[in-house]
Design a binder for these strands. Structure first.
Lengths: 220, 220
DNA sequence: TTCCAATATTTCATTTTTGTAACATTGCCA
DNA sequence: TGGCAATGTTACAAAAATGAAATATTGGAA
């Protein structure tokens, strides 16, 4: 479960936020002392920080700036001042997003999810359902089992994954695999798809790739 | 240069936006007809779309939803209605970000840059000096020349790249390559490093990997 | 329902990748 | 300045990946 650290001096807001986050499946954590904010943050190493700009002892922006020098935890700035200048400053100091009070709960959750997803992508680990993917190593992991894909299989799988919301034509895949595919047998793609499907089946993902005859393929 | 398509019915705003974007180094494009919005968008295939929620003939959200079924162009929703509901809807329909009018020019530019950067990351393109790297395809590109790395070579290169600021021990690399390397000849790593160096030399990166005898390797 | 083009599967030969072994070189320390 | 362990290079055989060919299956249009 992902832990989210709340750095905020209004106790009412802290409680509300904690409840909201807990309901959404996160593990909320509230900073107990602002005097040693930086140390406490580093030692609790949360997955994300909700950082209020107006906190006692320290300036939120300053804290962010200091944090950024030693760690790489995603930060969403929370500000009650509704001025554009603040927002610009936060972004340039390295906040991943910002939100102004009062915020809509759903929006906050969406933004948290978006930032977390971005970080996952950055670390080069892609996920598909409950499968972790290490593209350059050609590895798919599902719980205890590990699956090795060849380069072509991984290229196809990643292309489908990055276009999961639509049908991908065979031509697109051929272009992605072989760029100019003049010399390559059209059936080579079918064979590679077939091999990929065979392997996906081994980790319980039979039928993950649907054929849309005449159109292309679709990843469920 | 990145093209940005403006979908907005207020001509004054269109002009202002165009000027702003042009100054920031983008190529602005204005949708001429809302009647065939979808077709026009697809045929102009911009790098990003600024989409107003309130446009004639079509609802902005609906248009976004339709677009998402066939393409994957980043979209920033622009809304003058300052209600949270709109924002939530846009996000769930697949907008990459949204902004409410009136917006601060700098913020708009920051958000555009952020979304574009995210998309680049998503497409999995890494860079090293003036070299573009497509990890899963095993391709290094430098201007006109293209280099093919094998899986092991790419794993080593990416590991060095992701730890460019420090010396990487041979043991770390062996672990990254073979996880539990009991059965594998220690020299296998040396050979793979050697092969990688040979290929890097071909694109003018001889000496990119330094040996720190007794410690490991260091990527310049 | 029938037919046929689109897609799947299996097998096989070629090419590429890989680890090992044998030998060469390097650079540090006494 | 040797000596020697760490690292580099080259050649080679085994293993893996790959595309083509032959054949089988499928799903939709007529």
């Amino acid at each position: 479960m992902k832990t989210i650290l709340i750095v905020e001096d209004d106790n009412t807001i802290c409680d509300e936020l904690s409840a909201l986050l807990r309901n959404a499946g996160y593990a909320p954590l509230v900073l107990s002392s602002f005097k040693h904010a930086k140390e406490e943050i580093l030692s609790s190493s949360p997955n994300l920080i909700l950082l209020d700009i107006n906190i006692p002892y320290l300036n939120g922006e300053l804290l962010l700036k200091e944090l950024r020098q030693t760690c790489d935890i995603p930060v969403i700035m929370v500000t009650s001042r509704n001025t554009a200048v603040d927002e610009v400053l936060s972004m340039s100091y390295g906040a991943d997003d910002y939100i102004t009070k009062p915020y809509h709960p759903t929006i906050l959750l969406l933004r948290i999810a978006a930032v977390l997803k971005r970080y996952e992508q950055r670390s080069d680990i892609v996920t598909y359902h409950d499968i972790s993917i290490l593209p350059q190593k050609g590895i798919l992991k599902k719980e205890d089992t590990e699956l090795l894909l060849t380069k072509n299989e991984m290229i196809i799988f990643m292309y489908l994954l990055q276009n999961q919301n639509r049908i991908v034509s065979r031509d697109e895949l051929m272009t992605d695999l072989w760029n100019n595919h003049e010399y390559i047998n059209d059936n080579a793609l079918t064979v590679n798809i077939s091999r990929l499907r065979g392997k996906l089946k081994e980790i319980g993902c039979a039928d993950a790739i649907e054929t849309r005859k005449g159109l292309g393929y679709f990843l469920l």
